[in-house]
Design a protein around this nucleic acid. Sequence first.
DNA 1: AATGTGACTACCC
DNA 2: AGGGTAGCCACAT
Length: 104
Amino acid sequence: MNQEPDINHRIWQVVALIPAGKVATYGDVARMAGLPGAARRVGAALRALPQNTRIPWHRVINAQGRISLPEGSRSQYTQRERLEAEGIVFSRSNRIDLARFRTH
DNA sequence: AATGTGACTACCC
DNA sequence: AGGGTAGCCACAT
């Protein structure tokens, strides 16, 4: 087989499949993209997205149900706002109940 | 080829 | 529950 086209594109394509009001973990996305174990690579792919992208990058969170962006950063605030706008609830400790909101 | 890096994870206290 | 740590993968230098 040839080399994979562009891994970023494959990852973005998977992220685009996450429905509004649901979330997926980095590990979930990696597995769905055919890259099991490459959760960190998913973060790199999202980081490479342009600001004006339509890809719903905000629906990707870590395995602890938390936002992985730096605390207090603008992007972290944006991600939380978008998730809450879709009906996702954050616990008192800033965590999302994966059993309830994770795509399955 | 070797080393460093990170929007990550699973484990183990 | 929360913090530390060793793997992890693909890339960049």
